[in-house]
């Protein structure tokens, strides 16, 4: 069974990939090439994305709204990464990132530590 979140992702995937304003009809037709989905369902979820601030709609094509993503996928990803890597004050929240940002000297010390045991920095 598909969850609501999956459809949200499918809608956003298409709008990001197309990189142009699109109507709900276009999105439905494209999803329908892979699986059947009702127009009203996509309409509802697109509305949710709009009210959550993911999508803009300021122009119409005929009677249908044209939707565009508010921010690029990369912009969202960068914000997530920075949160996940500890920029947020909620350290225990997303936390446990692999390594922290380092200074040049520390990187040099790392390289030296690898060199002394005769390891290549690249595998």
């Amino acid at each position: 069974m598909r969850r609501l979140g999956d459809l949200e992702a499918e809608i956003m995937d298409r709008l990001w990939a197309w990189d142009r304003p699109a109507t709900v009809r276009e999105i439905v037709d494209d999803i329908n090439t892979q699986r059947p989905v009702a127009y009203s369902t996509v309409m509802t979820v697109t509305n949710i994305l709009h009210s959550k601030g993911w999508l803009l709609r300021d122009k119409k094509q005929g009677r249908a709204w044209l939707y565009t993503p508010v921010r690029s996928r990369e912009a969202y990803a960068a914000a997530l990464m920075e949160d996940g890597l500890g920029a947020s004050t909620d350290r225990p929240a997303t936390l446990l990132h692999f390594v922290e940002n380092m200074s040049e000297e520390e990187v040099a010390a790392l390289r030296e530590a690898l060199r002394t045991v005769g390891m290549q920095a690249e595998e």
């Binding site: 890597l85 500890g86 920029a87 390594v99 922290e100 940002n101 380092m102 790392l110 920095a121």
Partner: peptide, 15 residues
């Protein structure tokens, strides 16, 4: 992971 340039100042330094 540590050495390849992460954006400076984007997150806590203390590495």
């Amino acid at each position: 992971m540590a050495a390849v340039g992460a954006p400076r100042g984007a997150f806590a330094v203390g590495g």
